[in-house]
């Protein structure tokens, strides 16, 4: 017991599989961390459709324990992870996107990703209407209850803090300044789990081809 038997070198890979050495060279992860992420990826990508690709329903299932019902934020994250925009998240997309959430990833990558996430209509700016829509969506999914006037106050206050040139839209530069002053706004952009991914998915050792 305790020993690792030699693994099948060419076990079946999911469609769109990319070599961990290549992904590690392009991301914040080590090769072993990418291999551990592959264990997570397989679990997620076979949870409903059994095709080795993560579909939106599988992503929702993992986040909410149910695949039913859209969630504005989860669906936005899915769409941003789906770099090829073909409706599924492939392994390389999964690793490259999650890399931004690594605690070691550059702050500028996190800032840029959050900007794209909140620029709901992809205009290159975050508009007040988008901010209001996101606050309302957050309230809908949570137990928080705020009056319409409280929502307006929060949206107006935040918007005026961020929109420093007063042109009624937040541009990437203004966003960068805003998150520097309000770092808690990017709290969700760092996942401590990613530092312990090899511990969380130790079975990667069974399939590992390198020793970091």
């Amino acid at each position: 017991m305790g020993c690792v038997l030699s693994s099948p070198r060419r076990s079946r890979r999911t469609p769109g599989y990319e070599e961990p050495t290549v992904l590690a060279s392009q991301t914040s992860f080590t090769v072993n961390e990418v291999e551990a992420l592959y264990e997570l990826y397989k679990k997620l990508s076979y949870s409903i459709f059994k095709d080795g690709l993560i579909h939106k329903e599988e992503f929702r299932l993992a986040l909410f324990r149910t695949s039913k019902g859209a969630n504005l934020f989860a669906d936005r994250v899915f769409d941003l992870f789906d770099l090829k925009r073909n409706g599924v998240i492939e392994f390389g997309e999964f690793v490259r996107s999650l890399s931004i959430f690594h605690p070691r990833a550059p702050e500028s990558d996190k800032t840029a990703f959050a900007f794209k996430l909140y620029d709901l209509r992809g205009t290159g700016y975050i508009e007040k209407e988008e901010l209001r829509e996101m606050v309302v969506a957050l309230l809908d999914e949570s137990d928080l209850c705020l009056s319409d006037s409280a929502v307006e106050e929060i949206v107006d206050n935040t918007f005026s803090q961020a929109d420093s040139n007063g042109d009624d839209r937040i541009d990437p530069k203004e966003w960068e300044e805003f998150v520097k002053k309000n770092p808690a706004s990017l709290r969700n952009m760092s996942l401590p789990y990613l530092q312990d991914i090899t511990t969380a998915f130790p079975s990667f050792v069974m399939h590992s081809e390198v020793d970091d």
């Binding site: 993992a62 986040l63 901010l131 309000n182 969700n188 789990y193």
Partner: peptide, 25 residues
């Protein structure tokens, strides 16, 4: 009345943005 949080901080608490859930068994 709760202390006023900035709207982006509020949004960041969405479960849909809590990707840590993906790592929970």
């Amino acid at each position: 009345r709760p202390a006023v949080m900035n709207a982006f901080e509020l949004i960041s608490t969405s479960q849909g943005l809590n990707l840590g859930t993906l790592f929970e068994k």
